[in-house]
Design a protein around this nucleic acid. Structure first.
Lengths: 250, 250
DNA sequence: TCTATTCGTTGATTTTAATCAAAAACAAAT
DNA sequence: ATTTGTTTTTGATTAAAATCAACGAATAGA
């Protein structure tokens, strides 16, 4: 499961399935309609593939930034570590998604990226990407959109953390997972989470016990069925309502 | 943690105050060491200045994205609005900072930008910026750093919202304000906040009463003096300890 | 297959922040 | 100076989530 297949959040499956061999091409070039010459240029950017075993690090905080990473297969989390031991999972990353954008600002990685299952990524040397994006304006623009989308996503998480109750946060999280799975050709309502309750909790600003209780509550209400990491959504609509407003009774 | 918004941070005050007439030049060109010709090119990008009265909107959610905005003077907030009435202040923005990065992703503004005092901004048409950044690689790279820094900042807020207690959040917020004021040549320990308790609360994921109580608590402990919007920090070190980040000594 | 360890659930209790409510302080306009 | 509306503070109470604790269930490794 969640081995590789097609990817890419917002591009049609038809596009995604097409020729392009490497994952970074899928993520970066396909949607912008390049000609053959341009595709060839871009192909040269992706110099290296890396495998990361489950539990292994793609990068650590403070290490030198050299490349962005496009997830070819697998599943990763990113988290920031504070000196005082505080920790926050800032994201989960699936096939077709881009990691490392935070590191551009200081040329150092500001977070850890850990594989939650055996994963494969393509390295995209950033300076090369900047070079060729000068000659391919549509690529540059697309890259800007990707960065911007990350900002919008983070604002969404801020909203979640700032104003939602535990159950709403979990509903929101499950719907987000669902959406990302279905885009990749998996079931919208039936999937395995790769992360622990603690990791979900860290991402959602909750303790693991609270996450567990929220799962149980949603199950009691017959909105989902939980079996450890396996989730079955019985009623997407009601899950959306859960996320929307708690006051609107069950 | 709670890293400040881009701009100024890494450039000296001397630079910031220097010749450059427009704010966007201050923000975008100074740090990258352009030659005269390049500065001239960049100068053409800034076509328009806008004044926004206190309470007025720089942009609304859903409106078409055309330009980034560099704050020339004043103080703004950005906030996202959900259909269900939920609201989240995503940032406060001072002189030299750049707004609108979120809008690149969909060509629509995803948030409201409201002036908290009479403000002035420079419009930077985004397509023009992309155009000239093709011929000025250092400008392009600098722009990427700015976007990346916004992502890092947002991750810092996520950490705050996900793992800090009310008082820690407020301490973090005050230290962030302090840092940003001092960069602009104002007092590090003595300043007026432009936003209400409610707006602080929204940003910090707290209710206004909780914010007020946290202020009172810090005052009781003789760490700050509060007079409505006027804040005097009596003990920066203890405020840092409050935040839980004692190792980050100045 | 078995064991050690991690992971997940649930209950009881405490802590924290939200909510409800009222009054004081302040700002803007008359 | 007075009124009006907004903002801030503080207190009392309730609600939500954290914490503490115990126990199964699942998983990885021997």
């Amino acid at each position: 499961m969640l081995t590789e297949r097609f990817s890419a959040k917002d591009f049609s499956v038809a596009q995604i399935r097409s020729s392009c061999a490497t994952c970074s091409l899928r993520e970066l070039c396909l949607p912008v309609g390049l000609n053959d010459e341009e595709v060839a240029m871009l192909g040269e950017v992706v110099v290296h593939k890396r495998k990361i075993q489950r539990g292994g690090y793609l990068h650590r905080t403070g290490t030198k930034f050299q490349a962005l990473y496009a997830v070819k297969s697998g599943f990763l989390k990113t988290c920031i570590l504070e000196e005082d031991g505080r920790q926050q999972v800032t994201g989960f990353h699936m096939t077709g998604e881009l990691l490392g954008l935070d590191a551009i600002s200081t040329d150092m990685h500001t977070c850890e990226a850990v594989a939650l299952e055996d994963s494969e990524v393509c390295e995209i040397p950033f300076s090369k990407l900047e070079d060729i994006s000068r000659t391919i304006p549509s690529l540059m623009h697309h890259f800007h959109k990707i960065m911007s989308r990350e900002i919008v996503r983070d604002h969404g998480v801020m909203l979640l953390l700032g104003s939602m109750k535990a159950e709403e946060r979990l509903a929101s999280f499950l719907l987000n997972m669902s959406r990302r799975f279905v885009i990749r050709g998996y079931s919208e309502t039936d999937f395995n989470l790769r992360m622990t309750r603690e990791e979900i909790g860290s991402y959602l600003g909750l303790k693991l016990e609270t996450v567990s209780r929220a799962f149980s509550k949603l199950q009691e209400e017959a909105i989902i069925v939980v079996n450890n990491k396996h989730i079955k959504i019985l009623n997407l609509e009601r899950l959306k309502i859960k996320m929307g407003n708690s006051s609107c009774a069950t």
